[in-house]
Structures are given as C-alpha cells and as structure tokens.
C-alpha cells in the first residue's frame, strides 16, 4: 500500500474515516490521486467503494448524521475538501459525478448539459450553445444528437443518456470526474463506448472510477486500489495489481476466488 504515483497529484486522501451515524464505513484509508490519470476502485460488494467516492464531492452531506474524519487534500490549492469549513457546493463545483444509472433531468438534451452552467449564473445564449456543443463533442455524443438537441433527453438510448450525463458533468470543466459503476446498467456496445470515452477524457481531467468489472478496471485505469471491508488493501499501478499483486487477498479477489 505504498506506490506513490510518478505523475503530479491532483488529490490526496489522508487517514480518512467515514461514519454513517455510528457505523464506520471507511477505516483510516489513504490514497494518492494522480493528476490526469484514471484511478480505479475495486472490491467486493459492500466494501465501501461508493462511500469512498461520495466523499470526494461531499454527497454524504445530504443526510444528517454522516461524519467525515481526516483529510482529502485537493491540489494545487491544498484545500481539505471534507473540512466542515469548506462549502460542499464549492467542492461540487470543482468535482463532478456520474452515477451508476443514467439520470438525465426531464428536460431537453440542451438544457441537461446547460444546467450546470446555468447554476453558475451563465445566461448568455451564445456562450451556452458553444459550451454545450463542446461538452457533447467531448462526450462523443454530438454527432448522434446534434439534430435533436431540443428533444427530451429521455428519448435517447441508455448509453446515450449516460454519455449525456458525462457531457453534463464536463460542461462546467470539473477538475476531477467521479464515476460510480458508470456502465453497469448498459449493454456491451454502449459499455465499450463509455470506456473509450473515459480513456479519452483523462487528457483533460482527473478521473476516479468505481467498478465491479475487473476487466474494465484493467482496461481503462492507470492506478488501482483494492478495497475490502472499508479499508484499502492494496494500491499500485494497474498492471502491477493485476499481474503481480503483493497481497494474497487482492490476488484471490482478482482471480475471482471471492467477491
């Protein structure tokens, strides 16, 4: 559990504990997040992957009684994003999230992507149009939807909806993009499109992805953290984790002997 990435860090988790009321879900976890790289979180169901990911944009703040301890330092300004003094809205402005199931708003394609910009006070039509187009292109969706940009987003296929959600998150230029099993609700074709897209995106944004799918982690990520029972058991370069794991438990998990 050492392996400091060679590239510069975008964030660093230090001695993070997380509690759902009295239940501790994360136990003293540490993790470096390399800038413009993809870090994958893997581990059996219930080990705390989603919990971990949601700490990064303070989604746990929605429910009273949830409690963080420790630090998640965001670089370059060294902001501890889980400090109670830091406004969760500010954190979510910088760190965006794509959910497991595509969740477009019941609005048009355009308004979905423009939403984050509007929330940030952008009302100039030409600028909105420009940014929406850019985000849709980044999300590899533009060609498919450019003629129905003002149609309801629900008319898109599941995979297109998920890419729309990615575009929606990208439109505001987040520094980190969080993915929680972004393809688990999609068919194989749509899945491979999203995987390709995620690999493209790391040129521009730091990515953390939670996945159940070991092949997916191996294919897309640069670093992999293996979690078990609220702890990080092993963290290393992805090919190292998948070819020469240094811990027995990791090996047993990736070879499918449990999980």
């Amino acid at each position: 559990m050492s392996a400091i990435p060679s590239s510069p860090l975008k964030a660093e988790v230090k001695k993070l504990n997380f509690y759902y009321n009295l239940v501790q879900a994360l136990n003293d976890v540490n993790l470096p997040i390399a800038e413009k790289r993809i870090t994958a979180l893997i581990g059996p169901s219930g080990c705390g992957k989603t919990t971990y990911l949601r700490c990064f944009n303070r989604m746990h703040d929605l429910y009273p009684g949830n409690r963080y301890e420790g630090e998640i330092i965001l670089y370059p300004d060294q902001l501890n994003i889980i400090s109670p003094k830091v406004d969760p809205i500010e954190v979510r402005m910088r760190i965006s999230m794509v959910f497991q199931k595509p969740n477009p708003f019941p609005k048009t394609v355009f308004e979905n992507v423009a939403y984050g910009l509007r929330v940030r006070g952008e009302a100039r039509r030409n600028l909105l149009e420009e940014k929406v187009e850019k985000a849709l292109k980044q999300a590899a969706l533009w060609e498919e939807v450019k003629d129905r940009i003002h149609d309801l987003a629900f008319n898109l296929s599941g995979g297109q909806q998920q890419r729309l959600c990615i575009a929606r998150a990208l439109a505001t230029n987040p520094e980190i993009l969080l993915f929680d099993e972004p393809t688990s609700a999609l068919d194989p074709t749509a899945t491979s499109k999203i995987e390709e897209l995620i690999m493209q995106l790391k040129k521009e944004v730091t990515i953390i992805i939670v996945t159940h799918n070991m092949q997916q982690a191996a294919r897309v990520s640069d670093y992999t953290a293996f979690m078990y029972l609220g702890e990080i058991i092993e963290f290393d370069k992805t090919d190292k984790v998948f070819t020469h794991p240094s811990i027995r438990l990791t090996e047993e998990y990736i070879t499918g002997r449990f999980g």
Partner: peptide, 27 residues
C-alpha cells in the same frame, strides 16, 4: 420524483434551492 434527479443536480454544484426550482419543480 426519482431521487436521482436531486442527487444529479446537487452533484453538479447546485444549491438546494436551485435544485428545487430548476429541476424538481419543473419535473
């Protein structure tokens, strides 16, 4: 309304009120 609307809006940095007014009420 599915809770995913609210989560989605908040995750984009919207305040509670912006979520209600721009997503939940229209939905």
């Amino acid at each position: 309304l599915p809770p995913s609307y609210k989560a989605g809006a908040l995750a984009l940095g919207a305040t509670h009120w912006e979520t209600i007014w721009r997503v939940l009420v229209p939905a």
